[in-house]
Design a protein around this nucleic acid. Structure first.
Lengths: 198, 198
DNA sequence: TTGTTCCGATGAACCAGATTAAGAAAAACG
DNA sequence: CGTTTTTCTTAATCTGGTTCATCGGAACAA
């Protein structure tokens, strides 16, 4: 009996990559399951990020720490999302991010070498990874636009609109640092304590 | 006699994708050359971005226009770089960006359908596009970190360090809006008119 | 159960960077 | 060329968001 996690991942591969059931199973089979406790790290600076992680359940957060010690959230991942220090993973260089579990979670990990083999053995796997990267890139670009274009309050509203589940689920300090503002200010926005125009 | 532009693109494909000389020529052959005059647009909102553009010479700029009419530069592209409205291109939806030439330029364009055919016909082409997307994603992530982590002045210094040629080449208003600040403030930074700490 | 540590709320003082307005310099153009 | 348009500079003023400091509650450990 295959775990529910592997089935979710296989379904993901079938949906996005158009893989056959057999190929999807092969794909998922290259991953190994890992349980992560709340507050446990799966990626830390200095060490290279050796895995790409598919989230089966729970929630994780990637962040960097600035000069003065302030944390800046780079990404969240909940069920059916992916997370890693992408820059570290693809270039196989030391990570600059932390990736930590916000809740007890289950992830499926593939390591760099296995991923290379997968991509070489089947054109469709290669295509799947390409699509994941392209979607990630498009996502990042949309986020960048939001950051450049919107005010703090608008960024929060925008996030709420697009990811209401996540906004409710992650701690406020994590969301604030994702949106590029302080916890205090997000608190004020949430409680409507910000002077509005007119 | 093949134009110098096609040779540059073929060289790019050989270098990044590890293509044979023959494959690289096939790859480059799927593109068509286009001359773009300064101030000419190659992508505009409403129309879908039908092409991925490789810059042979010149410089281009992608930007969005916010509510109130302010421009925000999303990316620059000079020789040997790529540019398009990625979100529009991969999902084949109406563009939200403008892409305009900052100088008279020459670009090589491939349209969406031709790209799909390329990817299907040769695993190595698929792999090349995957790598381009991955690098783009890693690049975006580094930029996001810089935006979240650094002050306006630090962002400028950081950019200068990494892309001194571009900083000198593009108009100041374009650079300022790329770095997420006003032209006026960038002017102050450049002329050391910003109050420094101690 | 009682510390202890973490997390969010609130308010006052402060500041990095925006806005506004005007002119100077440089580039485009006929 | 000279003229027109675009780009850059400077300075005064203003503001969205930060910083700092304090408090209350919830989660957590022992």
């Amino acid at each position: 009996m295959i775990s529910a996690g592997y089935q979710k991942l296989a379904e993901f591969a079938r949906r996005l990559g158009g893989l056959t059931t057999g190929d999807a199973a092969t794909f998922a089979g290259a991953f190994r399951e890992m349980k992560v406790k709340k507050r446990q790290f799966i990626i830390q600076p200095t060490f290279p990020a050796n895995h790409r992680n598919y989230v089966v359940s729970g929630a994780l957060r990637a962040y960097v720490v600035g000069e003065e010690g302030s944390e800046h959230t780079i990404s969240f991942a909940v069920e059916d999302w992916w997370i890693t220090d992408y820059n570290s993973y693809i270039y196989q260089q030391p990570a600059t991010m932390f990736v930590v579990a916000l809740e007890d979670s289950v992830v499926l990990q593939i390591d760099y070498e296995h991923e290379q083999i997968l991509k070489q053995t089947n054109h469709r796997f290669e295509s799947l990874f390409r699509q994941m990267a392209e979607r990630g890139l498009a996502f990042q670009q949309r986020r960048l636009i939001a950051n450049l274009t919107l005010s703090a309050e608008e960024r929060y509203d925008h996030f709420l609109q697009h990811y209401p589940q996540i906004a409710r689920r992650v701690p406020q300090y994590a969301l604030a640092s994702y949106l590029g503002m302080t916890t205090e200010f997000l608190s004020k926005i949430r409680n409507n304590k910000v002077r509005k125009k007119s």
